[in-house]
């Protein structure tokens, strides 16, 4: 259940930025959560509901961009989508890959009032 730690970090980041902008409420938070980031969305939703209570994120709209996994084969340079870390290169079958997207875990923006 590391999703709880992740939600707590999001609350910290969001509240710090909102306070710095002298805001009293957060209307919306936009997040990037890559599909290879290791976050289980069902656990994340559960943790979100519990942990955001009595914080500035309680009731805020949450927009999550799920970024699909993409890798480049270090052997033949083919670029291709991956769903699992152990997916082989579809061209040459090699497992030596550079993951270029899908690991994102980022707070992109807030809308505050």
């Amino acid at each position: 259940m590391h999703e709880l730690s992740i939600v707590m970090s999001i609350i910290d980041i969001a509240e710090t930025h909102a306070r710095n902008a002298s805001s009293s409420a957060i209307e919306e938070v936009e997040l990037d959560i890559g599909e290879l980031s290791g976050v289980e969305m069902a656990s994340f939703d559960f943790a979100w509901q519990q942990a955001t209570k009595q914080t500035l994120l309680e009731g805020a709209r949450r927009q999550v961009n799920r970024i699909p996994g993409k890798a480049v084969c270090l052997d033949c340079s083919a670029s291709f989508p991956i769903r699992q870390l152990y997916d082989p290169c579809p061209v040459c079958g090699n497992h030596l890959l550079d993951i270029v997207s899908g690991k994102e875990l980022r707070v992109r923006s807030l809308i505050v009032v």
Partner: peptide, 16 residues
């Protein structure tokens, strides 16, 4: 969005 102000955060969640 009733006049809300957008803040670009662009911060890694595990930054801390």
């Amino acid at each position: 969005s009733s006049g809300g102000v957008k803040i670009d955060v662009e911060q890694d969640i595990l930054y801390q």
